[in-house]
Design a protein around this nucleic acid. Structure first.
Length: 515
RNA sequence: GGCGGCGUGGCCGAGUGGCUUAGGCAAGGGUCUGCAAAACCCUCUACCCCGGUUCAAUUCCGGGCGCCGCCUCCA
């Protein structure tokens, strides 16, 4: 079987040792672009990645706050219902960006949130007659399962909103102190007009915002443009104590509080869907910069395009949702992933089942080539990697990168047909496919489900299938390592080993394979 | 109304002032094969409309038409 021949291409390799990596230097000066890889070795490079920054609406050279390190935060879902195809696109888009940055030699801290308290969740809980925590738990689990199946690597930090109420309260207090917020009738509001720079990200001009459209009955705003930082709780709603009485946080504050806590002011990348630019991200900037005395919140804002259905944005409110888990049941998850990656992340993509069928055929071509190849220890074809790097350096153009990949496949197949050495092409293939997350896995672990369930129970982790459990356990272990709780981290490692799964840490993150 | 984006061959989808074809799927031809399948190779169909700039525009500029997103919750 191909399993032994195909390396686990999700497996990153060490980069920061042997003089390569972030501290690599060129005549004593730092190579600001870090580097690109040839057969696992990092070749220092001065070339900078170019990214499209929504803030400024232009392509800009990517220079990090801390040399060699990327701090990124991506707006995750509000866990009110099961994920749809659009959620998967976002997760995959930023997963590839993260993988590519690591491949280029950066160390990346990737934080994503789960918002588990919000109006819609409360509404869903009321409707279903269960608690908001149960709604969030149920939906959150579905998101994690779907993402795992899409080969989205576990985040370094999964920030849960309700675990950060004190941080949010503290931030609101800061905003009150600085005169950017006011308490009113048990609510606290952010005063939009107190911040002259408001509107910078979305291109809105305060005086041209349609007033009234942001005013709900029962609110106590001084200005319709203001937005809630804290809402007094109504009967039968979950509440937390605060200096302003029992209540719950507004929608935007959790992202600001958690991003600042985990990454600090002025971090590198903030990602999310295009539809979050206004008001969510605009408000995040306002709150954060106002609380931090005007220091810039984020260096680069990256926004992915929407998934559409018959030309119309897929959204719950439109009622044209295709469930992500259903899709993943019907087609190979890697094909869905390929479907996403065929278009540039900022473009809208239309969803249609035929397109996923297409993607499956394309995936077959990739995997068939790799199976022909067998084990390889050649150096990767340099020209192919340079083309790949150029494509990805251009605002993470996965569509073009995919073109390079298929060219590699054709060249490799030609060599295999004629009996020539295809090693360099196979090696390049492995390299590229590792970044895109499209390699054929060398094993599955479904038969280990029983023992994995035991391990999962021991560490308070859940998951619908074996792969999801492994994903969760590794996420839990990564979290434990982050807290320097190595006893727990090692316990997870040993338990997984007993169950038949070997965990390996690399600079590209943690990977695993069967023992 | 304000802000932003898009319009590429049968379908999906990159890209570019002329140089060598993006790429994938589909289709046609071929190789291989006991047959079939699989796999591989080869080939084919472009740049919404109208002006302008230019030796040369799908690519730049202007106008038009069409489509989409945000301005309220939304990945």
């Amino acid at each position: 079987m191909p399993s032994s021949a195909v390396p686990n291409t999700d497996n990153g390799q060490r980069t920061t040792e042997n003089g390569h990596g972030p501290r690599a230097s060129d005549n004593g000066r730092r190579a600001s672009g870090i580097g690109y890889r040839v057969s696992g070795r990092l070749i220092p490079s001065r070339a900078l990645i170019q990214v499209y920054n929504t803030l400024g609406r232009s392509m800009q050279p990517f220079e990090t706050r801390d040399p060699g390190h990327v701090a990124m935060y991506v707006c995750g879902p509000t866990v009110q219902a099961a994920p749809h195809v659009g959620h998967g696109r976002q997760a995959v888009a930023f997963d590839v960006i993260r993988r590519y940055l690591e491949w280029r030699g950066y160390s990346v801290k990737y934080v994503a949130n789960i918002t588990d308290i919000e109006d819609k969740i409360i509404a869903a809980a009321t409707e279903l007659g269960i608690s908001t925590a149960e709604v969030a738990e149920r939906a959150g689990q579905q998101f994690l399962d779907a993402y795992a199946r899409l080969r989205v690597r576990p985040y370094d930090v999964t920030a849960v909103a309700t675990d950060h109420i004190p941080e949010m309260i503290e931030m609101i207090e800061q905003l009150l102190e600085r005169g950017h917020a006011y308490a009113s009738g048990g609510d606290v509001y952010f005063s939009v007009r107190s911040l002259p720079t408001y509107g910078e990200l979305s291109g809105r001009i305060v005086d041209e915002l349609v007033p009234g459209s942001r005013l709900d009955p029962g609110e106590h705003k001084r200005d319709p443009l203001d937005f809630a930082l804290w809402k007094a709780s109504k009967p039968n709603e979950p509440t937390w104590d605060s200096p302003w009485g029992p209540g719950r946080p507004g929608w935007h504050i959790e992202c600001s509080a958690m991003a600042l806590k985990e990454l600090g002011i002025g971090f590198d990348i903030h990602g999310g869907g295009l539809d979050l630019i206004f008001p969510h991200h605009e408000n995040e900037i306002a709150q954060s910069e106002a609380a931090e005395g005007g220091r810039p919140f984020v260096r680069y804002w990256l926004h992915n395009g929407m998934v559409r259905l018959k030309g119309e944005k897929m959204a719950k409110s439109v009622g044209n949702i295709v469930g992500l888990l259903d899709l993943l049941d019907q087609y190979r998850p890697e094909a869905v992933r390929l479907f996403y990656l065929r278009a540039h992340y900022r473009q809208p993509i239309d969803f249609a089942p035929e397109l996923v069928v297409d993607a499956e055929a394309a995936l077959d071509r990739l995997w068939a080539f790799r199976r022909r190849g067998g084990r390889v220890d050649a150096a990767a074809d340099r020209a192919a990697l340079e083309r790949f790097t150029a494509a990805m350096d251009d605002d993470f153009n996965t569509a073009e990168a995919m073109g390079v990949l298929f060219d590699v496949v054709r060249d490799g197949n030609r060599h295999l047909d004629s009996g020539e050495d295809a090693g360099p092409y196979l090696a390049a293939f492995d390299e590229i496919v590792g970044v895109l997350g499209l390699g054929e896995l060398d094993s599955d672990v479904d038969d280990l489900l029983e023992s994995l369930r035991d391990v999962a129970a021991r560490f308070g982790v859940t998951g619908s299938d074996a792969a999801a459990i492994v994903f969760e356990l590794i996420a839990a272990r990564t979290a434990a390592r982050g807290e320097r709780d190595f006893e727990r981290a090692d316990a997870i490692r040993f338990s997984l080993a007993e169950a038949g799964v070997v965990v390996e840490d690399g600079s590209g993150g943690t990977s695993w394979h069967r023992s």
